[in-house]
Design a protein around this nucleic acid. Sequence first.
DNA 1: ATATGGTTGGTTGTTTTAACCAACTAACTG
DNA 2: CAGTTAGTTGGTTAAAACAACCAACCATAT
Lengths: 409, 409
Amino acid sequence: MVQRRTKLNLGNSNIISVNSKVVRSVNRAMILNLIRERQPISRIKISRISGLNKSTVSSIVSDLLNEELIYEKMKEDQNIGRNPLDLYLRLGKYFVGAVNIDSATTRFAIADIDGSLISKSSVPTESSNPEGFVEFCMDNLLGLCEKSSIKNLEAIGVSITGIVDSKNHIVSFAPNIGWENVNIGAIIRKKCPEISNVSVGNDAKSSALAELWFGKHDLNLSNFVFLSIGPGIGSGIVVENRLLEGEYNASGEFGHTTLFEEGNKCVCGNLGCWEAYASERATVARYISKVNNNSGKSVDVIMQDIIELALNKDKVALETLQETGRYLGIGISNIIKSIDPHAIIMGGKIIQVWDVIYPEIIEIVQKRAFSGNAKNINILPTSLKVRPRLLGAATMAIKTIFDDYKITA
Amino acid sequence: MVQRRTKLNLGNSNIISVNSKVVRSVNRAMILNLIRERQPISRIKISRISGLNKSTVSSIVSDLLNEELIYEKMKEDQNIGRNPLDLYLRLGKYFVGAVNIDSATTRFAIADIDGSLISKSSVPTESSNPEGFVEFCMDNLLGLCEKSSIKNLEAIGVSITGIVDSKNHIVSFAPNIGWENVNIGAIIRKKCPEISNVSVGNDAKSSALAELWFGKHDLNLSNFVFLSIGPGIGSGIVVENRLLEGEYNASGEFGHTTLFEEGNKCVCGNLGCWEAYASERATVARYISKVNNNSGKSVDVIMQDIIELALNKDKVALETLQETGRYLGIGISNIIKSIDPHAIIMGGKIIQVWDVIYPEIIEIVQKRAFSGNAKNINILPTSLKVRPRLLGAATMAIKTIFDDYKITA
DNA sequence: ATATGGTTGGTTGTTTTAACCAACTAACTG
DNA sequence: CAGTTAGTTGGTTAAAACAACCAACCATAT
């Protein structure tokens, strides 16, 4: 992969100068991404779409063929003239490793460059010794490789709950597992020096990335917010196809915005956070208090129980989830007004009862939306078929293969 | 100025291919901006900062000298070796026009490329006939030019209250002046066909741009939110030196996020919007209700009156503004958690009583900030000495002279 | 005072890279 | 075999990199 020139951030402009190598790298990345997104696609179509001369396209495509990142195949049923040579991503050649470290479970996967997961495994998260656990994770990942007869990994991506300094591969603050300033990048580089591309990111942000790269919606998503509804609420904000990281890597903490002055106590210590109303934790608490009030005896349930009950038309469960839907709607309205995204994509167990929550969400949002365009907002469950946070880890790794400099106007 | 290649937005990547002209244009823009931000600066320093070879820098600088965008001057007091030739922006050569259309007043200015305003004027806003009024504005602007013996304008920038489609130069929705889908760009192009660069933008967003380009803070601002506190509350979000526009050009409508369920009625029709508590309108209403309760007789004041009273230590005015400060703090806390900016920059009449409101704001924010880093947030009054909205219009225009493609990693 | 080496800033002529261009070949249809 | 579309080849051009050079200054030795 191409070596990058030093990037100097000076005042109001990110200064990156351009030389011929950067030019090639930008155009190569652009063509490779076009093939990824539009396959099958011919050289001539790439030329017309990109504006690059067809001989330039041929030259870059020839490089990509040599690198075995793509392959070509004659198209048969053309109407007139010579048939184009369709280009496709080549699978089965380059692989990446994905790790998702969650408070309870850590999951592993090997993924191909199209985001398909080749093999998976998981272990309980052992957070007391960060360095040892990350090394243990790498052993697990390499074990998966061996099992699948994969000799080496192009890149590794790690997604994790908490605030992550992705630029420096450091987990700054992960209260759920008690980690602070853990340099995951350094640990991995030490353990696996042969793997040059390591990415580390927040789980909700990486889920957003997975949705951006591998989501299947009718929309052309480039501006959206991915909402990860779990015990808490996390999010990833995507603006013009890029993740908004935040100055201190803490963007998208909508879960801790105050919606109710003097409201319910949140795990963060403040009162009235959105999370204290719309998260799984809040939903479960509300359900329990309802049942306890009704029956007098205490119950012990988890989110999945409430969902199953609702799917079986249990009245209290349905009522509880509808309330959660309304609370979700309130917070989502504020997100829409803040960011003005094209869509809100939701992930988490709760999307199993989409039919229950969606009408509540959209009613609130429509009522509160104040501009004509904002009423067009799309609120959708994630289209991903595998766990977004794990695919997100894979996506961060895959991104290092496809991405390079980008040029913007 | 350099002609741009067609930009095709396709799925998840903005496709811009690169050829040698784009390369030159990127490097030229980078050097020109370096001179703008760091002047005086020598060729050799530019070379070292940018990574470009010094011969390349010399070549581009020679172009800029020919275009008379910059000038050079020998530096005298060097320690050792040949003295560098310091490069400076050349003023008095290229000018831009700025128009700020507000609900009551429309202001005009001619600005030099360093953002200094050469001459100014204003008229009452006449909103009933948009096309006629915009043409009238152009006549005013050209009149200012004549008065200052300026032959032509390089660019024109128009900032306006409301939702603006900056890409297409259309005012989509401006309820304050009753405009809807007014194609300002087309009107200006028709009226002044010789002016090729026209920019149109929301007033708060353009204020943010002005702060980004011409603000004087100790901070290196590249991620921040500009809050414009007027009768309502507008904002401009800057992420990595770029304005966040929003899918429907409606980002940053924090003023209409709900902070109080079932709270005060807002002009937008909803209940409990931030704006209904922290804006000038809300402040004035709160002050009036306090005074009426105390004295029994009704009063009629405007925001500036309350500010003057507070500056003269009037107790009720101070109390009212302190309350506004606390409400501001609540909303700002939510912005910080949503966007995670490096700073919040505030504009509007209320910053005249910064000493009154700041302690209230920061107390609330510190209490609610939940992550270590977020506690470092900078909340500051605007550093701009002229009206941000007018300078913002000028900045949009100036930006067209300096900006071109940018390369990001 | 003046020559000289050391140092920094800037220019010039050549080389290299990669995109562009125009003419060509390839492969297909009717 | 003409017409059409896809892709390649060889030469051209633009621009950055490179290396050698010139310019201008200082300190110091003579």
